[in-house]
Design a protein around this nucleic acid. Sequence first.
DNA 1: CGAATAGTGTCTTTGAGACACTATTTG
DNA 2: CAAATAGTGTCTCAAAGACACTATTCG
Lengths: 268, 268
Amino acid sequence: MADYPSEQEAVNNYDSSQYITPDGYTSDIAVFTITAEEYIKNPKVSTSKELKIMLIKRAAVDAAGRPNIEGGKWALPGGFIDGRTKETALEAAARELEEETGISGIFLKHFGVYDEFGRDKRGWIIANAHYAIVPEQALSKRKAADDAVEVQLFSIDEVFSLNLAFDHRKIIKDAISFIERDLIETKVAKNFLPEEFTLSELQSVLLTVSNNPRITTKSVFFAKVPKLAFIEKVYDEDGNPKKTERNSYRPSQLYRFNDVEVIKSIYE
Amino acid sequence: MADYPSEQEAVNNYDSSQYITPDGYTSDIAVFTITAEEYIKNPKVSTSKELKIMLIKRAAVDAAGRPNIEGGKWALPGGFIDGRTKETALEAAARELEEETGISGIFLKHFGVYDEFGRDKRGWIIANAHYAIVPEQALSKRKAADDAVEVQLFSIDEVFSLNLAFDHRKIIKDAISFIERDLIETKVAKNFLPEEFTLSELQSVLLTVSNNPRITTKSVFFAKVPKLAFIEKVYDEDGNPKKTERNSYRPSQLYRFNDVEVIKSIYE
DNA sequence: CGAATAGTGTCTTTGAGACACTATTTG
DNA sequence: CAAATAGTGTCTCAAAGACACTATTCG
């Protein structure tokens, strides 16, 4: 390697001041949950679930009492990443989410970068957008943080009638597209469910985003899902099928996702 | 809105110096093409196509004659984004790609952000990774740019035996996963093909990344594809089926992708 | 006619989807 | 037994997949 410069020499030759670098680097999170409506809409369909997104209302003034940018508007939780913490955007999102909800190990996925000049009046601010999936119970522990004065869940229908901060309307729209697509094209439904779930529970999650007959038709769904390679039946210590009675009097079989990868060709 | 601060007041209250901001913001591009091997491997299979990625060899010294970081290694084309240009990472990638290949309107998709601290010795450098699809002919026009001394196409098999710069091994690995998945789960195969293509041409593109029997089996593929909602038969001005003889003596029917969206459930 | 690519026909097995039926438990 | 959820059985039609057959053109 004698032909090549020493690493240190090369590093010293980089002068970051030759470029204008970003004025800020942020991490935003679209937090989704599925809420169960407990009332009975139809004698044959007892519970109906709905996909919701969590937003915060930005405070009018910041902690120091100065006017807050985009104050009073609804926004995605998130914030600036400080180079001193040496965090990645994903790590920062995970930490912020944990601070906000009090739970760790939440599913989090990066889905886009928003770096258009002018998207934030304060300068050239790069936003990393993520979506998170949180079980409903966990959100009851939520608490207001930092400059958030109010936290609320909105259905997909109502969220776009709100007064949204920055370019969050576009980010939220994208987040919803991603989660709706991922729920049926990938195994993320897993994150809305317990480790071990029944076929009805899986079906009710999928029904929040799809009306595909292979999901809505009971005989088809119940016949097909146990045969899928990425889903397996759960057995107890004695090797007997493991069942639960949490949803009904009659015990129902438990299933779980395994590690088999899925790729679904559009040409089949 | 009298309760909320004026926008200008709020903007003035933001002090970017309270955070350590990134030292650099870059755009990298994994350029893919499919090359046709002209030789005949098997009397029954006349042409075989292969997916390849384009890399550049980083110069040992920069334009000013100083040692170049990661000089001599193979890397993804790309470069720093300067805030003065007010470009997004995607726009910068498109421009760089056009400068590199001399062609415009290339398909380009963002697939990831690499912002781990320590991934670049020069500081906290954020990389936006994209993949691009370029028809083979276009790459013949390629020319070395900037600090690139050499440009070369590598097959997926051979690329990982190279000495790769920065964390480009991981980025390339991710790019390959994305393009292989997207080729069969989305309509991106479109970008490797002419506007109007034959079933055999589509099949040979898909065969570079899949051995799914519904793609490899001729009777199934030829029967199925013309019935797909997102693909349509092409007709000429007189309303007759439009055919080409570019691949054979016998004319073959032309098809094109239309704007129908595809979502393929893993539960069906 | 042979070579080369582009398809089509046919047959068997599997799966989709509709819908009515059975099973398990509690009160 | 009624209510509530969890499944299964059956029937029809459509699609998957294997593989052999036909079609078009050139030289």
